[in-house]
Each structure stands twice: as C-alpha cells, then as structure tokens.
C-alpha cells in the first residue's frame, strides 16, 4: 500500500514534515502529562505511542516517496555460493598449512598431546569437585524437618491451634511452633472429617484424634501449596474428601492417609500424626515421608 503512494515528491515531503511535527507535539504532550497530570498510565502510554508511531509513519512514507528507491544486485562472497566451495580449497589449504607450520619443531606430538589431555582432565576434575561438597549435605538439607514428637501446631499468627477450632468439613493452615513459616516442611494443612469416615491403615489408626488429620501442605509433584480442600455435604453423590493442588491438580485422598488419587503426583502426601495435648494440637511424631518434590535421595514408601 505504501508502495503505491502516488504522492508527488513535494507533497510527500510535506506529509512527512507534518507527521514529524505531530510526533514532536505528542512527545511534548507526554512531558506535560507527566508534569501536570500526575502520570495517568493510559494517557502517558498513548502519548508516547503516538510520538513513536508518527515518527515511524514518517519514516515509512519517506522510504517510499521522498527518497530514491532502487533495486540493485550484488555478488555473494565466494564461500557462500554453491559450487564455489571447491574454489576455496586454496584458502582452506593456506590456513591449514599456517596452523600446521606453527607446530614445526615439535617432535613428540603424541606425548605432549596426551600429557595436555591429562592436565586438562585433572584440572577439570578439580574445578568441579567443590560442587560435590554439597553432596552429603544435600540429602540433609532437603530432608530437614522441624516436626518432632511434641512439636506444637500454631496458626499463622503464632497462636497455638486448638482442636476445637475446626469443625467437621473445615481446614486450616498451620505451622511447626518456632519454625520459619517459609520452611517448606513447616507448613501443614489440617482438616477435620467424621471419625467414622476414616480409612487409615492400621499403623496410623491413632494419628487422627477426633477426625483431625494433618498433612504436609507442599505437593509432592512440583511443590506448590495445596490449597483446595474438597469436603462433600452429600458423600453419596459427590466426590469424596480430598486435598487438591491448584498447579497441576494432583489430588490426595485424606481418608486413607494422603494417597494420590488423580493427577501427575506419584508419592502420597506426607501425613503428620496428631495428638491433643490440653486442647491443643501437637505432633505425635515426625512426618510420614519427605516433604516437597521427589529427587534422587527420596525413598518412596
């Protein structure tokens, strides 16, 4: 379309000048808006966009009208032309010879080459080795947990979580007392179900006093915070109680102790055994499994 602008040169130049002039005004408008209008994002954006766009338009019009358009032809460099590559043999030979000539006088090439390789390997190994000092500690770092027998559960405000606070069908986020709330292992999600609904394995029978269950809040798939609790008011015609992760929708059945029932997670959600101590919720033992996403050091149940 711009190509077909049939403006005579003189008129085109006036158009370009007008566009540039308006662009200048738009730029000044930006300054004025900034200084006097308190910087409304929308108006500032439009002003700058106009300034830039008008200059762009001026340039495009100029490139098609006021300035001479020519189509020219040029040869490509030799190396880039098919078939010419063979003519480059001289240049390649020349460079190769120069490189080889530099090695003249070196007699034990193989020996020196091998020795150089050995030095390189040694130095490379030395350079990479400090990474391994993270090694034995990585498992410890990734496996740390503030939960022990007797660790109290506290709410986000630091106050102890009382057993009576949750009714059946409720959930709350809690933390290990004294731990950094940003510690992945510190956060648990506590839910309450009817005691009669529980289907925990025998060794976990006493992990859920009054139907209160606690699980790590961090999804075992990719470490998002599990923030959905699904609790049916009519279990016969609805999906059962479960914790769901909002990132990739891994779903964990709370009644069976955190087994995965849907989604890409493989490992079940670590459960924290609970007991009630003078009305407050307290950990009865450590978490049933490692917190967070799986990696090489994680043992699956």
């Amino acid at each position: 379309m711009i190509r077909r602008l049939l403006l005579p040169a003189a008129a085109a130049e006036l158009v370009i000048a007008a566009l540039l002039g308006l662009a200048g005004l738009a730029g000044l408008a930006f300054v004025a808006l900034y200084a006097f209008d308190g910087g409304d994002t929308q108006l500032l954006g439009v002003a700058l966009a106009l300034a830039l766009g008008l200059i762009g338009a001026a340039l495009l019009v100029a490139s098609r009208t006021a300035f001479k358009q020519r189509q020219v032809e040029e040869d490509r460099p030799e190396f880039a032309v098919p078939g010419e590559a063979s003519r480059r043999e001289d240049a390649i030979e020349d460079a190769t010879e120069t490189a080889r000539a530099g090695l003249d006088g070196v007699t034990r090439r193989r020996l020196l080459g091998a020795a150089g390789a050995a030095a390189g390997l040694g130095l490379g190994a030395a350079a990479l080795t400090p990474v391994a000092s993270l090694g034995p500690r990585v498992g410890k770092l990734l496996g740390e947990s503030p939960w022990h027998e007797g660790t109290a559960l506290v709410e986000e405000n630091g106050l102890p979580l009382r057993a009576g606070e949750l009714e059946v069908g409720s959930f709350i986020t809690a933390f290990a007392e004294g731990a950094d709330k940003r510690d992945l292992a510190a956060a648990v999600i506590v839910v309450r179900v009817e005691e009669s609904e529980l289907e925990l394995p025998p060794e976990r029978r006493d992990w859920a006093p009054l139907g209160l269950l606690a699980f790590s809040k961090i999804c075992t798939h990719a470490q998002c915070a599990i923030s959905l609790f699904r609790y049916p008011s009519f279990p016969e015609r609805s999906p059962g109680p479960a914790l769901v992760c909002p990132c990739h929708y891994s779903t964990f059945d709370v009644l069976t102790g955190g087994n995965r029932v849907f989604g890409p997670a493989v490992r079940s959600l670590p459960q924290l055994p609970l007991r009630i101590d003078a009305g407050r919720l307290v950990a009865a033992s450590e978490l049933s499994g490692p917190v967070g996403a799986s990696w090489g050091g994680v043992r699956e149940a």
């Binding site: 929308q42 439009v46 966009a49 830039l52 766009g53 200059i55 762009g56 340039l59 495009l60 100029a62």
Partner: peptide, 21 residues
C-alpha cells in the same frame, strides 16, 4: 535504513500503546 528504522518506531508504538492501555 529508513524502512527498518520505521519498523523500529512502529514496534515501539505498539508496545507503548499496549503498555499504557
């Protein structure tokens, strides 16, 4: 050069228009 420069300003215009609106 003029066409290319013109394109640069148009890219700028589109981005600032979006950025504001």
């Amino acid at each position: 050069a003029l066409r290319s420069l013109g394109l640069f300003f148009c890219v700028g215009a589109v981005l600032f228009a979006l950025g504001g609106l």
